[in-house]
Write a protein that binds this DNA or RNA. Sequence first.
DNA 1: CAAGAGATGGACAACGTTGTCACGGTCAGG
DNA 2: CCTGACCGTGACAACGTTGTCCATCTCTTG
Lengths: 329, 329
Amino acid sequence: MKDVAARAGVGLKTVSRVVNEEPGVTPDTVARVQSAIDALGFRRNDSARLLRTRRTASVGLVLEDLADPFYGSLSRAVEDVARAHGALLFTGSSTENPRREQELVLAFCARRVDGLVVVPASDDHRYLIPEIEAGVATVFVDRPAGRIDADVVLTDNAGGTRTGVAHLIAHGHRRIGFIGDQPGIHTAGERLRGYREAMADAGLPVRPDWYAMGPTTPERVRAALATMLTGPEPVTALFAGNNRVTVTAVRVLSGRPQPVALVGFDDFELADLLDPPVTVVAQDPAGLGRNAAQLLFRRLDGATSEEPSRVELPARLIARGSGEIPPAY
Amino acid sequence: MKDVAARAGVGLKTVSRVVNEEPGVTPDTVARVQSAIDALGFRRNDSARLLRTRRTASVGLVLEDLADPFYGSLSRAVEDVARAHGALLFTGSSTENPRREQELVLAFCARRVDGLVVVPASDDHRYLIPEIEAGVATVFVDRPAGRIDADVVLTDNAGGTRTGVAHLIAHGHRRIGFIGDQPGIHTAGERLRGYREAMADAGLPVRPDWYAMGPTTPERVRAALATMLTGPEPVTALFAGNNRVTVTAVRVLSGRPQPVALVGFDDFELADLLDPPVTVVAQDPAGLGRNAAQLLFRRLDGATSEEPSRVELPARLIARGSGEIPPAY
DNA sequence: CAAGAGATGGACAACGTTGTCACGGTCAGG
DNA sequence: CCTGACCGTGACAACGTTGTCCATCTCTTG
């Protein structure tokens, strides 16, 4: 910038004015500066600019795994909103590891991002308190923050599961299994709750061998399913607590002579092309991202000290067939 | 930092030394400074630090669409490599729009990222020349750069397609169709070339109504497929030039009495669960990302003025059944 | 005991920008 | 011709760090 000023025969500040399109510079001067800029290939250093203005025009997004299509859609939505507000996006995958989450968040804070969108991997976010007090707007998404009170955007996991299980009940099932992720994960717990509530609402019992919570590896899902299908009171339908469970269940069930009804949480591509087409309770990952980002920028733009808000997005039943298989007695 | 220094009763530079774990500070002083840091909740401002050291420890990744699982895997791989080198990752989606690509790239450059990984959306990257000369390491991935000579990591699109088409030929097909993306896209052109070569290698003709290039919307794919299947010399097999084409083809073909063999470029989840299971030529998106990022950091760490290098990753045929359907005469 | 060596600490400038303020020139009105 | 308002411009400090260099203080050694 100094070089540009020298070449154009003006002061430093005038170059700054031209670069920022501030008013109050003679067209003639603008032209001179502009041609010096072009000649020297000058480009403003935004790092320095932002050091001075104390706004980095960037937000950090911490999620579980960028390679997961669910988070892919979510990121894309956050990115679109950020772009509309002229901000750039840092992304990082926590891989469901609390330490890694914290490292990423603090690295972003050290870069002085304006705001943070976080899919929690940890259950204690008190480490964020100083940052939030220092003015970093923070919104949690998909799962609530742990031990602090903060903005959050969630899917109605319990409600969605209730709808899905009710769908199975409506098609005549009374013995329904549930396989979910590790109970420590908020969404998994909520979905289990929804399952229990739906069963209770219909006056149905839940036998302990009808549900299983734990890591959703194919082997474990396979084993849990075997238990449910061979016990004294075998289930005639399954609610799969997430994507991975659903896919494994489809594989296992497709090989059985006795058809088993299935509803899964989370939609996935090609669900309609399987045989039978898989009924799901669909979340809206883009909606989560969009809402979280919008909330973030609302905080950033204005109202500094509102109450933390909580947005809950509905989950939608998409009936495709696998949930309508009648119970086999 | 000034406040920390005052509270600990030391100089500014000593705080800096403690924060950076530089040697030459008495354990006693370190403790004093440390407790002042904790008391004040001080966190180093990396923006300022990086302004001073002239290294931002961040790289920019521009790709087509973060929500596409292919790019999700790619990003994740880039992120992992970046993390191993202590760098943070900016991401941005160009949405296949050259102007948007340029905006993103230049925004990243204005932030003074150390390096850039770009999936080209434009066919002219001369706008990057000043940036590259200014020292921004740049690696292109998935598609080569336009009109400049730069590092690039590609999949062997033509070779992979040859393998896939040869697979169909080996199973007795002589009339094989090809549906690809818009010919302006490099990968689409390469795949078309591979198709032509495989046919030529087998001494087979290629009729003009056997291949179609263009936007891969379901409607267009459906129409193209209809033409191929009802012409004077209908095809008995199809090579689908990408993911979206494959999925649409599966939908269309599954409704036909006469089975049509199918091989698709790009693997996708659940391909093995469809009926018939879909044979594909699989790329390695994570491999693309990993190689590109590694190349980037090799440039960053050392050798400044090597020749641009070109890495080509193989594509792998995964035979699952749909390619082994015999021709129906 | 003097002097050199080594350890420890701090003052200052610099990184590349922007905000503040003051300066000089032009122009209209008295 | 003078005054005051207004406009365009530039000097300077500041943003929060780190690199350079020098000062001091404490040992050790001759």
